[in-house]
Design a protein around this nucleic acid. Structure first.
Lengths: 332, 332
DNA sequence: TTTATTTGTGAAAACGTTGCACTTAGGCAA
DNA sequence: TTGCCTAAGTGCAACGTTTTCACAAATAAA
């Protein structure tokens, strides 16, 4: 059938062990022997079987990536960061979509562990007690990316969502706005429903602006839900003069929803988004937005995971990347 | 260490083979025995080691996916289709970005074969002779998705790009346009440089409109290159009155490039895009575009691959999915 | 020269499954 | 009774590596 290490050994008149040494770059091989073996490998077209290697060495150089939805711009960008660093460290990636469905998440976790991945990168919405329990049971390291777990037990890479939301809203307040709406992603997502909302409220409170329930409208991350959100806000007796939107895609929806009603941006309405996806520069006016470095979060998370997999020392299990506001034309 | 099939066998007083049968749903097991084994599995928390299984059975239930860039909306959407069908058939996916770099592509191919994937899904730009040679050497099936290989030797799933481009341009001609530009992706990509360009030319020829080199401008798929492309066209003595753009993202660039110069769309300039990514509805005016069913291409390609992996009969190795034009507001 | 140390190599035991060739116990027909 | 068949199991050899240990040969130190 396929050529094995045994075939190479026989042809080269050495033992399997020596072939293995050559293949793995072990220095304890006489140069002349190495050359001989290499020649045979070339001649026979030998390609080591990674499965057999995995069984023997208990390492697969493969990591599992559980991601809500790879077709989302946001996660796709993170995935690219993850994969680039993985490649750099010679790992491959098993990628699966979870749709933030707990059943699927847990199922995928098990499948990946069964496949003996060397580590797991998890992205999700709600990390429940049960998740944490399973994570802790795992014998391979797990890192969360752009995903918060309230007790900070599991290593993770994020930005400070509360502060980022605060900054955005504070900026709007500084410009003199009193009626500032918040178009959020699903409120059961801790990042939106807890962190960002908290930042929004803190900024208002600090400026002694009363919190108004009617100004917070829930979307589902999509462009269309952004349009609908604006429609809802437009029906208010007193319309907002500025809107902080939880994601760029919804922000585009909000902008177009407003423009469709003849509202001029930024003159009559200022809008700030969140994430700084490529979408942000693809609208007119271009979107002012909070930059969340998605690629970097993925990359840093993967890098962190490699450290755990190599049993290197890590001083900070919870890494918080910096954020900033990118000022464009949807604000004055 | 971890609990193995051997531990389960001992605890349940049966042989490893019987445990294996229970795990794999083989009917040759007495119900009472099955129950007993299942209980022990549950009690010990046994989880079969997929690597060992892969070595013994020579099947890994894993397929390799070589993709140019997962962070591109276009490919991300396809990846989702691929993964969904893979999940449906109980396969996992090893996903890697190639950046359409031949070296990387060939390297990835080898890595994946070394990992003993059961099949490979390949997406790329230029499929060279060398690619085909390697593909043919592979002992596992390979399917191309949204990727053309001129001799049609390797199974693939596509739409008819030439006809699709023809349809778009023909539609523009029907509306009375005489000066129709084509903003294309890199010309060394066969889909853009060969197929779509050919369709564009055929439509012109058929209408006896002379082909004008100056009206074909090359972009690099990005939004910004769309803007630049329009800038170039705007400098022409005689500007185009309609533009066919090779991808939606570039089409958005073209639209904004035109709008930034005060050109009204669709009144003064009609634009039609290609792909029908989610972007198409996120501009004002909304983009008229050729719909290429990306999700479906991915899904169908994966389905085709499963057939090969199961050694099912396939009557058509080259599948061509239908395309159509979605009329929106960037055309009259 | 002798002794210790390094270097190079081989044999064989894991690694955790599946697949195959066999047993064994009943049931049934001749 | 005997022989044959079938269902339900058993036992063990793959599968293709890595890894440990042992050991011989070559080199360095005494």
């Amino acid at each position: 059938m396929n050529v094995t290490i045994y075939d190479v050994a026989r042809e080269a008149n050495v033992s399997m062990a020596t072939v293995s040494r050559v293949v793995n770059g072990n220095p304890n091989v006489k140069p002349s022997t190495r050359k001989k073996v290499l020649e045979v490998i070339e001649r026979l077209g030998y390609r080591p079987n990674a499965v057999a290697r995995g069984l023997a060495s208990k390492k697969t150089t493969t990591v599992g990536v559980i991601i809500p939805d790879i077709s989302s711009i946001f996660f796709a960008e993170m995935a690219r960061g993850i994969e680039d660093i993985a490649t750099m460290y010679k790992y491959n990636i098993i990628l699966s979509n979870s749709d933030q469905n707990k059943e699927k998440e847990l199922h995928l976790l098990n499948t990946m562990l069964a496949k003996q991945v060397d580590g797991i990168l998890f992205m999700g919405g709600d990390v429940t007690e049960e998740h944490v329990e399973q994570f802790k049971k795992s014998d391979v390291p797990i890192v969360l990316a752009a995903t918060i777990e309230k007790n900070n037990i599991i290593p993770s890479v994020n930005i400070d969502y509360e502060q980022a939301a605060y900054d955005a809203v504070h900026m709007l307040i500084e410009k003199g706005h009193k009626r500032i709406a918040y178009v959020t992603g699903p409120l059961n997502d801790p990042i939106n429903g807890l962190k960002k909302l908290a930042g929004y409220r803190r900024a208002l409170e600090e400026a002694s602006i009363a919190y108004d329930d009617a100004l917070v409208v829930e979307g589902d991350y999509t462009y269309d839900s952004g349009i609908e959100a604006y429609d809802k806000l437009a029906e208010l007796a007193e319309r907002p003069t500025a809107i902080f939107v939880g994601t760029d895609e919804m922000a585009l929806g909000v902008i177009h929803g407003a423009q469709d009603r003849g509202v001029r941006i930024p003159d009559e309405l200022e809008v700030v988004g969140f994430d700084n996806t490529r979408l942000a520069t693809m609208v007119r006016p271009k979107l002012t937005t909070v930059v969340q470095p998605m690629y970097d979060i993925g990359a840093v998370a993967m890098r962190l995971l490699t450290k755990y997999m190599n049993k290197e020392h890590v001083d900070n299990h919870i890494v918080v990347l910096p954020h900033r506001i990118e000022y464009r034309d949807s604000t004055k």
